[in-house]
Amino acid sequence: MTSRIKEKVFFTILGIPMVACLLVFFWIVFVLSSGIGTLSWNILTTSVLKGGIFEMIIGTIYLLLGAAGIAGPIGILAAVYLVEYAPSGKLTRTIDQAINNLAGVPSIVIGLFGLTFFCKQLGLGISLGAGWLTLTLMILPIVIRGTEEAIKLVPTSFKEAALALGTTKWKAISSMTIPSAAPGIITSVVLGMARVAGETAAILFTSCVLVTRGLPTTPLDPVMALAYNLFVKIVALGEPPEKVFGIALVLFFIVIFFATAAIVLRIYYRRRQPWLR
């Protein structure tokens, strides 16, 4: 074989997985799009009690925003501490490794932990709040890792210059490092949200019920969610899959929305950070 033909063969082989991914993606869209027929603006905005899915959509968004609201600040502070303050040593390395491992824990196990700890021991019951805390456990490692990376990308010269002007370490970090890392930090929070937007197992035992009367009014109320609804309809009620394609499609779009938002944010902010180019 001449080297030119070899090149072509190898590039073709390398391209196959990408084509396969695209095909699968379009196939999913194609299958789900058959659910479009069952959707209408009316169904999206009508209460479950009257045959719509309104509470499920809002419940899913409630879960997401609340979890991000808790995991965001905790994760950011933890990451700042780990990068800027934690003494490098065995303990810090262990914590670092523990965070990595947390990201790898199956969500059903996290859900089980949530049920035992948040719902029962803390007495939150099956509630929105318990769901937030459980999802927080899943978002945290993503936010911590993402924030750490974002902070490490900020040139140390910014912090050094601030310190040389006579600022305290915290002031140098809060006025230089964190604002410069903010784009990466925000992106990591949105990525964390995208990661759990379609999460089922973690909210299965901790926060969801099939039907509620209206939206939850306090964090102690249970909530409805699209993913949970799919699960129950297929497994417990034995409905044919085609009947829930519409709901699956809505959930799919919510996940895609957050994933796309993360990408758009990253591209937008990269343009404004000349030191990253």
Partner: peptide, 19 residues
């Protein structure tokens, strides 16, 4: 040390303006 660093300014090797 903060007052010291105010009294003693520093210019670095590579220009490092704040963003």
């Amino acid at each position: 040390v903060y007052e010291l660093r105010r009294k003693v300014g520093m210019v670095f090797q590579k220009p490092n303006p704040f963003p």
